[in-house]
Amino acid sequence: MTSLFRPYYIIQESEMAQPLDYNRRSRLKHVDQVFRSEIINIIPLTDMEKLFQLRILDGAERERFSFLPGQFVMVEVPGYGEIPISISSSPSHKGYIELCIRRAGVVTGILHKTRRGAVVGLRGPFGTHFPIERMRGNHILLIAGGLGLAPLRAPILNVIENRTDFHDVHILYGTRQPDMLLFNYQYEEWNRISDINLKVIVEQGDESWTGPVGLITDLLKKIRLEPLETYAIICGPPVMFKFVCAHLQREGIPMDRMFVSLERRMHCGMGKCCRCNIGSTYTCLSGPVFDYWTVMNLKEAI
């Protein structure tokens, strides 16, 4: 007697045979497959943060990989685990991506110990992005606090590369102390070459610090805004973007013209593990980039 049920082999589905592409999120694919990627450079930024340049090994995969500013990847270090990291490089850069990683847990700890040439896995890109297209023809406020400059750097570079599309561009950055400033070797370039108003502030100065001391909102007060022709991107800890957004709102910028990036624990990046839920919204699918109205409307977000 022939058997009653023919086994269904999912790997024979035509879509499973197609090259892996996480931008096609509705397609069936090996969701736990990774892009094997080589660490081509490690650039120390501070005691706690390093910038990793990663190149996808397979040429065709590398060519196909594309992302938008604000999106993140899952970095997998086999044997150690997987973590979500925002991409810090420009989306127009095809050769490699840059990830700014703070030493905080097991996986980031081991990444800080590893060396150039090591191969790790990448999945992604995942999540929503900053709507740079929609911001064209407007004034742009790019505001970061602390490690927030890591996710903000992608839109910064994107805006710089298309500088003529925008009116005034302000970058405001604040950290607790001067030795915590990220990417300080690039400020000069952003400020001078790209005609951008860059202001940096710290909460506590030291002997060498000659810049302003205070909170990020102090920098904001000095900027004259045209609220209805301005877009703002704010990256940083919740307590910081809450104050910044409240200030901008008082200045008259509509809530749907302000964008923030949230972070949560994540295990999948694909709306399955529920670890990143804010209330019941998935940070990985509906975020990490949210407009401020959505954040206000989400319980538990701030």
Partner: peptide
């Protein structure tokens, strides 16, 4: 809806689901 829907369908789940009578 969550695991076999239009947002990152899970092959692990779909394979089990379709092979179950």
């Amino acid at each position: 809806k969550v695991l076999a829907g239009d947002r990152f369908p899970s092959p692990y789940y779909i394979s089990r689901r379709k092979n179950t009578f």
